[in-house]
Write a protein that binds this DNA or RNA. Sequence first.
DNA 1: CCTCTCGTGTCACTCGGTGTCAAGGCGCGT
DNA 2: ACGCGCCTTGACACCGAGTGACACGAGAGG
Lengths: 193, 193
Amino acid sequence: MAERKRQLVSNELTEAALQLLASKGFDAVTIDEIATAAGVSKRTFFRYFASKEDVVVQFLAGMGADMRTELAARSPQERPSAALRHTVGVPIATCADHSDRALRVVRLILRTPALHARFLERQAQWRDDLAAELAHRLGLDPGTDLYPRLAAGMALTAFDAVLHRWSGSDGAEDPDELIDRAFAVIAPALDAV
Amino acid sequence: MAERKRQLVSNELTEAALQLLASKGFDAVTIDEIATAAGVSKRTFFRYFASKEDVVVQFLAGMGADMRTELAARSPQERPSAALRHTVGVPIATCADHSDRALRVVRLILRTPALHARFLERQAQWRDDLAAELAHRLGLDPGTDLYPRLAAGMALTAFDAVLHRWSGSDGAEDPDELIDRAFAVIAPALDAV
DNA sequence: CCTCTCGTGTCACTCGGTGTCAAGGCGCGT
DNA sequence: ACGCGCCTTGACACCGAGTGACACGAGAGG
């Protein structure tokens, strides 16, 4: 029940932050404003989030783990392109599910340099995780073989391109079809003998 | 001659910064320290560099333009994989030329989250530039075709993988050979009919 | 009823980054 | 040589992000 209250405060904070940041711009909003809007003190804000960027980007944390478990769960017989396509499909599906909210967040991230940088940092971490999982899956040594890192990077490049197009079209284009088109391009490299 | 003095102060600052940051770590060094070590005031530091990260990352600014002009200069008959391989070769060659200094800087960037984030931001900008140039080169509409962005992203993924391996091996491995191996992997996607 | 714990608010502080202004070097025309 | 702008710099004040220390109050358990 203490856990419930914690979740409640956290939601209150993210809600207030998203509303303020989207309307006034990232730099024009102080943490004091966000905290006050959520009914807590600035100090408490930092007990929930490590930084101003974190309140927007935090939800990405789980996605890395989700992707890795998805990749680990897929059949080893599956070709890399197919396995990675479904891996990347996980966060995209999450976006598509809450398209209204996700669209606002994605646009805010892409338009704000500080947030974009954090986002890219996350992606780099995802790439490391995926590369490790791929190396394990294929029995390759990540220290000598370039393939795992390259394959993970290509998959996330596809993810990024799809995200850009999706947010650029205001969610009009179908994310799933966009991933398919992107993976049609990169698959020859992923599945090369 | 005013220009010369400006360059001199700038060098003094970067030199002091690199030395301090590498030895004490990014967060443990204040801008006051760097400025004092270079014999100027904190305020003057910010007249030369926009942020603490900028001192380290600034030299990347020119590389984006260099790559784009290299790509623009290459023959249109050349296949995308070959053109992009040489494009990515430009910054890598710059690294290899000043390998001692470059190695220290790269390691510092990769080990410091704040610097890494800035680095990734730069790379994202490079990708935009390269994608635009590729679209122009191939007569594609970057608004509808995913290829330019994907191809640029793949090339930079290769760049990144090479950089990691190079710095991880303390500069022992030959960067040019690493690029060749990386491009051997991604070329099938780059040159797909 | 006491007490121990945990979450929170308050305060003080450091540091990154910016605006403002006055002082000083330097070229330039007279 | 003198005075005139121009540009660079340093000094100072200021804001906001982020952290550490501490005191307070609520709730759980004896």
